[in-house]
Design a binder for these strands. Structure first.
Lengths: 187, 187
DNA sequence: ACCTGAACACCGTTCAAGT
DNA sequence: ACCTGAACACCGTTCAAGT
C-alpha cells in the first residue's frame, strides 16, 4: 500500500536552519526537528543518514544562500567585465559577506565547523576568485582569494565570538584590514 | 574526617586535553575524563562547574601554551628592541602559530569554538600587538594586529578543515598571504 | 571533606510492528 | 512505502549516603 509522504528533506533542512538560528546548535536535536516538521524522530532517518549529515546539509544550505548573494553583488558591479578595478569588487564582496554573517551568525559558525562541505564552499567562493583574478591576474588569483577569504572569515568569526569587543570600533578595524589587504595585493 | 583529594583540577584539564587531541571533541566526555583521572564522573563536579566549563578550561590551557610559544619566539628575535624590522617579527610569529596549529589541531579548533576565553586570547596575542606596533606605529597597532590575527586564524582553520586541500601548495599560499599582508601594512 | 551508587532527564539510533 | 512505539546505549547532572 502506498503511504503518502508526510515531510521532505527540504522541510527537514529548513526546520534545522530555523532552529539553529533561533536557539543555537545545542537545540538542533533530531526530536526538535521532527516536532517542527510534524513527524516523530525515527522518521527523519528515512531522509537523513544521521544528525551529522543533517548538520552538513544545513551548513550546505547556508553556504548556497551566501553563494547566491555573493554572485548577485558581483553581477551588480560587473557592468564592465574589465580588469583591475582597484578592488571595488572585493570591497563589495566583503560587505556582503559581513552582512550575511551578522544576519545568520549561527549558520555562519556552522559553515566552518561540522564536516564542512568543501564543494559547496568552493562553489560559493567563485565570485571571490573572479574578483581576485581581475585584481592580480590569473597566476596569483587563487592565493589572493585565499588571503582575502581567510582574513574575512577569521575576522568575522572573532567579531561574532566577541573577541574584538574590547577596544576600538570593529567596523573601522574591518575597513582598515580590507584597505591594507587590497594595498598589499596591488603593490 | 579529612578525606584525601584523589585528583586535581590540573589533572582533569590535562586529561581533557589529551583526550581531545587523541580522539576528538565528541570523545571528550565527563566519563572519559573521570576514568582517565581515576575517579567517577560525579566527582568532577567538585572541581568543574559543568562540561562547558571544562571545555573552556581546556581551551584556555591551550591558549596559554600558544601564548608562551609566541612570547618565546618574540624574545628570540627581539635582540634589538628597535622599530620597523620589515615584518621579520610577524613572520616568525606566523610560523610559530602555524606550527602550533599543526601540532594541536583539535585544541586549535576549540580555541575559537566553545565559549572562547577572551581574556586568555588577549594575553596570548600580546606579542602580535607589540610586533604590529613596531611595524606600523602605536596608532594603527590594534587594527594591524587584528588584520594579521584574523588572516592567520582563518587560513589555519581552513587548512585544517581541508578547504584548501584542492589546488596549489598550501605552504606557498601561506607565504604569499603573509608577504602581501606585510606589504599592505608597510605601504 | 571528598567520593560514589543510584537515579533522572534527555538524546541519537534501531527495528519490529502497524497502516 | 512510509510512519511509529518501544527499546537500547550513552551522556550530563544531582544528591543522599558512605567513609
Amino acid at each position: 500500500m502506498p503511504a503518502p509522504e508526510r515531510t521532505s528533506t527540504e522541510a527537514i533542512v529548513a526546520a534545522g536552519r530555523a532552529i539553529l538560528e533561533e536557539s543555537g546548535p545545542a537545540s538542533l536535536t533530531m526530536q526538535a526537528v521532527a516536532t517542527r516538521v510534524g513527524v516523530r524522530a525515527p522518521s527523519l532517518y528515512k531522509r537523513v543518514r544521521d544528525r551529522d549529515a543533517l548538520l552538513t546539509a544545513v551548513a550546505e544550505a547556508a553556504i548556497d544562500e551566501l553563494g547566491s548573494r555573493l554572485a548577485d553583488s558581483d553581477s551588480d558591479s560587473a557592468s564592465g567585465t574589465g580588469t583591475g578595478n582597484s578592488g571595488a569588487d572585493l570591497t563589495k564582496l566583503a560587505e556582503v559577506y559581513r552582512a550575511f554573517a551578522h544576519e545568520h551568525p549561527e549558520s555562519f559558525r556552522l559553515m566552518f565547523t561540522a564536516s564542512a562541505p568543501v564543494d559547496a564552499l568552493h562553489r560559493a567562493s567563485e565570485p571571490v576568485l573572479r574578483a581576485a583574478a581581475a585584481l592580480v591576474g590569473e597566476a596569483d588569483a587563487l592565493d589572493a582569494a585565499r588571503l582575502f577569504t581567510a582574513w574575512a572569515t577569521g575576522f568575522l568569526q572573532m567579531e561574532l565570538s566577541g573577541v574584538f569587543r574590547l577596544g576600538g570600533d570593529v567596523g573601522r578595524a574591518f575597513d582598515y584590514g580590507l584597505r591594507r589587504l587590497l594595498a598589499g595585493l596591488t603593490a
